[in-house]
């Protein structure tokens, strides 16, 4: 089952680029958005990562960083990022495959991919909001902004 509000966000260290890793716990003090998604290279204009890429300045206003996560390798992420001109990290849940997605309860065993799921994690590393989307549907960003708004007013 997908991790819920008020649960501790499991820590992880994953490749963000071919030679750089990102550790979640190093971002304490910031709000974090985790966007698990099935695969790089989905159809263009409705692409979830491309949408978030346009929204970075809105996320910044909420002191939030966003990370995309899929089971694609760091090299695949690099090519995808370059092709879409993405300005935020894509993390590779690649070895062991899907390990982090499993910890968050959003691994699709049948496809061997992450499910499409969103988490907003507060400054103390606690999950504020989580959402499991139907795989075929890009969940957009309204839920993320609402969750960030709630955090802001606390």
């Amino acid at each position: 089952m997908i991790l819920q509000k008020n649960e501790v966000a499991p820590d992880f260290t994953l490749f963000a680029t071919p030679d750089q890793k990102i550790t979640l716990s190093e971002f304490k003090g910031k709000n974090i958005i985790l966007a698990f998604y099935p695969a790089d290279w989905s159809p263009v204009c409705s692409d979830q990562m491309a949408l978030y890429n346009e929204m970075l300045k809105f996320f910044k206003n909420y002191n939030a960083e966003i990370f995309g996560i899929s089971v694609d390798s760091k090299w695949c992420h690099l090519a995808f990022s370059q092709s879409r001109n993405l300005h935020f990290p894509l993390l590779a849940d690649f070895e062991s495959k899907g390990e982090i997605a499993r910890k968050y309860g959003v691994y699709n065993e049948e496809e061997g991919e992450c499910k499409r799921a969103l988490f907003v994690i507060n400054r103390d590393g606690i999950i504020e909001w989580s959402y499991l989307s139907p795989t075929a549907i890009n969940p957009g960003a309204d839920g993320i902004l609402e969750a960030l708004e709630t955090l802001n007013t606390k």
Partner: peptide
Amino acid sequence: DFESGIISGVNGT
């Protein structure tokens, strides 16, 4: 306009 789209749940064009 863009921001209203985001909060209205626009997920692609």
